[in-house]
Design a protein around this nucleic acid. Structure first.
Lengths: 232, 232
DNA sequence: ACAGTTATTGGAATGTGTTCTAATTTCTGG
DNA sequence: CCAGAAATTAGAACACATTCCAATAACTGT
């Protein structure tokens, strides 16, 4: 019945924007067209945020197991049914939590951009920063990463990471022309290697240093011929 | 009550060796030392095999969902409790099934080794062959790969793949000296990229050609300075 | 063949994700 | 403020992995 949601420090350390609202009756409803956007009132944003916060808080304790739907609902002060209206499955909820995490990382990077001279160095910088962030909440990280890879759901995770890497690695080549498809592929690959290394770390089979070493090796080779970023 | 287990065509197309037996009461039992090895009778091998076959058969139909523990037990002709004695969790069962798959791939490669001249080419060859194999049973592939990544369990998947790649890419450098740690890391990275691409394909976001293109790009860069294999 | 150990069985019981329902509350447009 | 639409709620209900248990069968060393 209580609501308060205390702790929630994680990846970077700032607040950040969120996405949509509840999944308002999509599909052919029984009658009139449902509000296309999905979001209606401000209180729905609140609810959504409360749910995500509660979920994150729980996950940062005992991992996925601790993040039980019933508990999340209770902690967020909503009915189980409502929780399921907002997040059709546990996975969707996890994805949402991760979304917030990435938002944090992005704003963190915007605030303090990677300083390395070469593209690979900058990419490594970003990835290792994210790694440190995740290491602070192992349980949560574990839960999130695992679930993410698992999910059927659209997972912007890899893509967002790849995008981020492309951006920090090979800044704006010209004006309208974005990154090469090849660059995107390479960045995506580096991201997937990173995720894999993270998983290994969470399994206790990698130390931070080992990850760094591996990421450096891979980044160096993958980003060898990336167009150097114009010195800002 | 029935036992027969018909279909089971998958990765390569041959039979292959299996691993251990049931997880005979490990941990400090109530009394005498349990048989260390785990395997006892021949019938236990049979049982184990039946279980794995049943599991694979079911998974190749409706994926993980169809592979319900009760059903597997029933199809394999064992009690639920017995199934759990052999495989403490569904994940363990999945891992076992995957193990068989990899065995198949390995023997397939042994039979018809990759022909490309350069290391990267051979690696791509192997990975794409495995890809085609998995594509034949999408449901099973999906189930297996997802579960594998998810699991807490020791997952020889990535490691075995990496080992395989190292082997086909940079054959025996000398006599006693195995591959460099760096080579292992690179091979492992390529394997993780491949797994990621597979997942994307299973999600319908990649075609076979796209995967090939990406794997080629990545392999080329990662294996650029691999010691060329001595022409057999 | 015996006694003790371990494996197998059938089935009940538990935990948690997910679905469903009927009643109640909140919105929205007029 | 009213009527209908959509959201929320409390809680039951369901599905499936996992655990437990008592009884029985199979196996081992002697």
């Amino acid at each position: 019945m209580t609501i308060e949601v205390p702790e929630t420090p994680r990846l970077a350390g700032t607040s950040a924007p969120s996405t949509a609202g509840p999944v308002t009756s999509k599909g052919a409803g029984v009658h009139g067209e449902p509000s296309a956007t999905g979001v209606r009132t401000r209180s729905q944003h609140q609810r959504r945020k409360r749910i995500i916060q509660a979920a994150a808080a729980l996950a940062s304790r005992g991992g996925v197991e601790a993040m039980q739907m019933r508990t999340v609902a209770e902690r967020a002060g909503v009915a189980l049914g409502t929780l399921y209206r907002y997040f059709p499955s546990k996975m969707d909820l996890v994805v949402a939590v991760v979304g917030e995490e990435i938002d944090l990382l992005e704003s963190s990077i915007e605030r303090r951009p990677p300083g390395a001279a070469d593209p690979a160095g900058r990419a490594v910088d970003v990835l290792m920063r994210a790694t440190r962030g995740l290491m602070r909440e192992p349980e949560l990280a574990d839960a999130l990463i695992r679930s993410l890879i698992m999910t059927e759901v659209e997972t912007p995770f890899g893509d967002r990471m790849a995008g981020l890497l492309v951006r920090v690695a090979g800044e704006r080549p010209g004006e309208g022309d974005g990154p090469t498809e090849e660059q995107v592929a390479l960045a995506g690959s580096l991201a997937s290697v990173w995720v894999h290394e993270l998983l290994e770390m969470l399994r206790g089979r990698r130390t931070y240093e080992q990850i760094q070493w591996r990421i450096e090796i891979v980044a160096t080779r993958l980003f060898a011929d990336f167009p150097a970023a114009p010195p800002s």
